[in-house]
C-alpha cells in the first residue's frame, strides 16, 4: 500500500491515458428492423430457391420432351432403315431391274485400262440367255410382319424343332 502511494502524478501520466467507461453503443437498427431484414433475406433466398427449382423443373420437362422426341425419331429411323434394307434386297432389285428391261449378260468382257485391250468377247444378248433367273418365282423379301393376336388365344405358334442328322451330335 505504501508503494502505491509512492507513485507521483508524473509517473501516472507516463503510464498511459486514464481508463474510463465506454458509453453504451446506440444500435443503428431496431429489433424490428433486424427481424425485417432477416425475413427479407429469407424471402429472397426462398424466392431464389423457387426460381431455381422452377427452372430445374422446366428444364427437366424440356429434357423429358426432347428424350421422347429423340426416341420417336429413333423409332422412325429404325422403321425407315428396315424399309430401305427390304427395298434394296437382292431379289427385289433383280425384279425391278428385270421390270425395267435389264437383262443379264453371261458373256464376260473386260477392258484392261493399262493398254485399253479388250479381254473376252463382248457379245450382245437378247435377254433369254439366263432363263433360270426369271424362270422361278422370285420370293419377295418378307416385310416385317405384325403378329396380331386380337381375338385369338395368346398361345405363341410353336417353334419347329430341328431334326437331328443321323450320327450328328448337334
Amino acid at each position: 500500500m505504501s508503494a502505491q502511494a509512492a507513485f507521483s502524478t508524473e509517473e501516472r501520466q507516463e503510464q498511459g491515458p486514464r481508463l474510463t467507461l465506454v458509453p453504451p453503443l446506440r444500435s443503428t437498427v431496431s429489433t424490428v428492423g433486424f427481424a425485417l431484414i432477416i425475413m427479407a433475406l429469407v424471402a429472397v433466398g426462398m424466392g431464389l430457391v423457387m426460381v431455381v427449382t422452377t427452372s430445374v423443373a422446366a428444364q427437366s420437362k424440356e429434357l423429358s420432351g426432347l428424350r421422347t422426341e429423340a426416341t420417336l425419331l429413333e423409332y422412325r429411323t429404325a422403321s425407315l432403315t428396315t424399309e430401305l434394307q427390304t427395298t434394296s434386297a437382292t431379289g427385289r432389285l433383280a425384279t425391278r431391274a428385270a421390270d425395267l428391261g435389264m437383262v443379264p449378260n453371261p458373256y464376260p468382257a473386260f477392258i484392261r485400262l493399262s493398254d485399253g485391250k479388250i479381254l473376252g468377247e463382248p457379245t450382245p444378248v437378247r435377254g433369254n440367255e439366263v432363263p433360270y433367273l426369271r424362270q422361278h418365282e422370285l420370293t419377295p423379301p418378307t416385310a416385317p410382319r405384325i403378329r396380331v393376336l386380337a381375338g385369338q388365344d395368346d398361345a405363341a405358334a410353336p417353334t419347329p424343332t430341328l431334326p437331328m442328322a443321323p450320327g450328328v451330335d448337334q
Partner: peptide, 13 residues
C-alpha cells in the same frame, strides 16, 4: 389382354 406382338415402335407411336 394382348392385342398384337412385335408391332414396329414407329407404328406404336
Amino acid at each position: 389382354e394382348i392385342v398384337a406382338k412385335q408391332v414396329p415402335a414407329s407404328v406404336w407411336s
